[in-house]
Design a protein around this nucleic acid. Sequence first.
DNA 1: TTTTGAGTTGTTCGA
DNA 2: GTCGAACAACTCAAA
Length: 462
Amino acid sequence: MADTPSIVWFRQDLRLADQAAFAAAAADGPVVALYVLDDDAPGDWRIGGAQRWWLHHSLQSLGTSLAALGVPLVLRRGNAVEQVARVAAEVGAARVHCLSHYEPWWRDAEAALARQLDLVCHPGYLLIDPDAVRTGAGTQFRVFAPFWKALSAKMPPDRPRAVPGKVVGAPHPPEGDGLDSWTLLPDKPDWAGGFKDWQPGEDGAAAALHAFSDMVVTYKHDRNLPSTNGSSRLSPHLHMGEISPAAVWHAVADGDGAEPFLRELAWRDFTSNLIIQLPAYADTSGLLKMEALPWRTGPAADADFRAWTRGQTGYPIVDAGMRQLWHTGWMHNRVRMLTASFLIKHLLLDWRRGEAWFWDCLVDADYGNNSTNWQWVAGTGIDAAPFFRIMAPLSQSEKFEAAEYIRRWVPELRDLDDDVIHDPHQADAAPAGYPAPIIGHREARERALAAMRTVSALPSPS
DNA sequence: TTTTGAGTTGTTCGA
DNA sequence: GTCGAACAACTCAAA
């Protein structure tokens, strides 16, 4: 064990258990723990408002856990490459350990740092190293089904490792910022009051996994019902790396009926594969000809967008979802599809506007997942859905039994019966305070189909 | 190289 | 009410 310290560079891996970079640094000698808030490198995809709330609490949790081991968490703000290099110079670090991350700005940062110091990138954000899942031709997959087949053949992942038993802090840790000085929490107004059911941090992640492990059996069915608590709600914990996907896999894989959930877990891996192949996927259609779609713009379109963000479209299931998102930083997955489809198809607004809104509002906002899912709904992605798949919000609301969900998030409709709450205007049951539908379903559907046809008729640019 | 089968999550219409 | 067919066209992955 050397006397010179090593740095653990934390990013979306804010945990101590099954954290290969932390374990490696602890084995190397004295440890300096570092987190850098870099708002410039990601450009428009800097951490959004809701996730900043989460980050504050997760860093607080990590800092407490590290302090108990005698290692302060050093906080720096600015260009990540510069800050990591500067701290390495300040403490005379021999080496920097981190987990690999796959957002384009992180891949750039890792490459830049590797040129100027001894950077060791460890696996652990995904179930498996993206390089390890390949087609027969040696390329990375672009279709989920064969990707899943190839990935699951290499499962299970290694058993998660415990927190290292022996950790020594560096004798003279560098100065850092105070967490409060970053003002990650909302102030005026404090819109995070509805976030109180979340428990960010490694302990909260473990508790969420424990709670979910009994529900895996019913996941396949219940996950589609917004009124039912059938989701894992692990997404923000996984995004922040408060728990490893390997730990999640092992907690549920031996139970009955685990496969549907494990497939969802593997989607994180798949979307990381996609953004490695297509780094600009959040900004550019996977199908180039889709860039010619005639999105609505102008004041009327902007007003419709505002109505969508505020949950004032007159479609109860859509409004319930958008309000849940605003109040809790999370939205049920079925409703994410419905609200996204509504923005894109019914309102004919560019999918990137919705993507950016979700990015700012979701505590689980993730570059690969968010872009892949929006492009899937839009039909612009490389895994394009058929253009005629236009979700019908009213029939989906009935099919997936969303009445209680609507009552919870659209209190104006609280007193309506199940048979009218999905479409109160049709039954002439809407109370005065609830807006009329922003557009009729049939009319919207036909407009969307016409718009899609204009690009389908075009030759595909090659 | 060519061929073949398949692709997360749907909706509408008409028999 | 239930059921099957139609809704397009393209790319990917593997044989």
